[in-house]
Amino acid sequence: MSYEQIMKDLKNKVYRPVYFLAGQEPYFIDRITEYIASHALPEEARSFNQMIVYGRDTSAHEIVDLARRFPMMSSHQVVIVKEAQDLPSLEAFEHYLNDPMKSTILVINYKYKTLSNRLKVYKALEKNGIYFESKKLYENSIPLWIENYLKSKGYSMNPGVGMLLTEHLGSDLNRIAGELDKLMIVLPKNENTVTAKHIEEYIGISKEYNNFELTSALARKDILKSNRIVKHFGNHPKNYSITLTLAAIYFFFSKSLVYHYLSNKSRDEAARVLGIHSFHMKDYEAAARNYSAEKLKQIISLLREYDVKSKGFIPVSAEDGDLLKELIYKILH
């Protein structure tokens, strides 16, 4: 079952006896758990009928004992198991999952791990509960996730905002959501569209000096702007990781090479194949005009070389800022 379907059922007060929430992305696990904790029971019933335990401090046998208790003056009880990945064994859950208490909502957080579908526990969950695997989103899908998150809160965003946030905050959805929540609190009431100016003013990410603007300048072979951005990066090394910058440039030029060989270069189709928003296609079109396929291959080779240098595998005396300036010169000339 998908995250969206689980949340839809929860909002319609359709609860299952067991939720086994596994996988690499903690954000969706946290949101499902928080919703159940806040809505499954009325507030006055939670002190007696809602328990939170931690995998490192308990055992599956003890959790089953809790789950088999009857609620006090309530139709249900909620048992939340956090850090269940630290439990020494899951075997004790097997019998319980084959016949779970209808008056208990058992929520098991099994972060950063998954269950094999060959296990009896997994098969029992399929019959009597919900097994949800929370998968990490690919970085190129984060901007769309940001757009949908804002939309769910009644906001929209200008093109480029999602990419700007992704480049600086990465794929940590909890961190991104936290920054967006803080932003929505401070935005004036009549402003429902998030802009790059808002991101700079309230989150502290420069709308002028960032990896998105750098790759855009490189695509157009704008030597002046490219050098100005790289100089700014070099002057503020704590704010700009060369590793992230090299990754952003590699991402852009590797996709530019793919674009070169597309038979259908219409914006919508090319954006679909490349896995990006169609708004960004203008940069890939510019790169195709300014760089031959052979030059793009040379650039990708250069990026691998400078990635190795920046990580110290090849001894160099240059600082990260100087390495970046050298690389940008070779890309543009």
Rank of each mutant, 00 (worst) to 15 (best):
F253Q: 01
Y131M: 12
V81I: 11
I276Q: 00
Y329T: 13
P42H: 06
P42A: 03
D9M: 12
H39W: 04
H95W: 14
T215I: 03
E139S: 08
G129C: 02
V78F: 01
E201H: 11
D322P: 06
K120F: 06
L21W: 00
Y110P: 00
L125A: 06
Q5K: 15
Y131F: 07
N117P: 10
N49E: 00
G160Q: 01
D322A: 05
L327I: 05
I331H: 00
V121W: 12
S47Q: 05
A196H: 12
Y96R: 06
F251K: 11
N140M: 02
F212E: 12
T58V: 05
F313A: 11
I229K: 07
V230M: 03
E25F: 04
I142K: 03
Y110G: 02
D322V: 15
K120V: 03
E62Y: 14
L183S: 10
K135E: 10
L224E: 13
S2I: 13
L165R: 03
D9T: 11
V194G: 03
P42Y: 04
Y110M: 08
E294R: 12
K295Y: 01
K297G: 07
K297C: 07
V161N: 01
D99F: 15
I146W: 03
N158W: 10
N210D: 02
L106R: 03
E91V: 15
L257I: 13
K282D: 00
Y112W: 04
K330E: 01
D322K: 14
L224C: 07
P42G: 14
S263F: 10
S75W: 09
V316M: 07
Y259D: 08
V186M: 12
V273M: 10
I229W: 00
F20P: 01
V79C: 07
V14A: 14
E4H: 12
Y35W: 07
E62W: 12
I328R: 04
N148L: 07
V121C: 09
P159F: 10
N190D: 11
E305R: 15
S317W: 15
K330G: 05
S75F: 14
Y202G: 00
Y131C: 06
E200C: 14
G321C: 09
Y250T: 10
I328G: 07
K136Q: 08
L262S: 01
L119V: 15
E269Q: 13
R220M: 13
V64Q: 01
Y19K: 13
V121L: 12
A293S: 07
E294G: 15
I105Y: 06
N49G: 03
N290I: 02
Y138V: 13
L66I: 10
L150P: 13
H236S: 04
N192R: 15
K102E: 15
R118E: 10
K207P: 09
I6R: 02
L169D: 06
A22L: 00
Y306P: 04
A45P: 02
Y19L: 06
D99H: 09
N174W: 15
L296V: 04
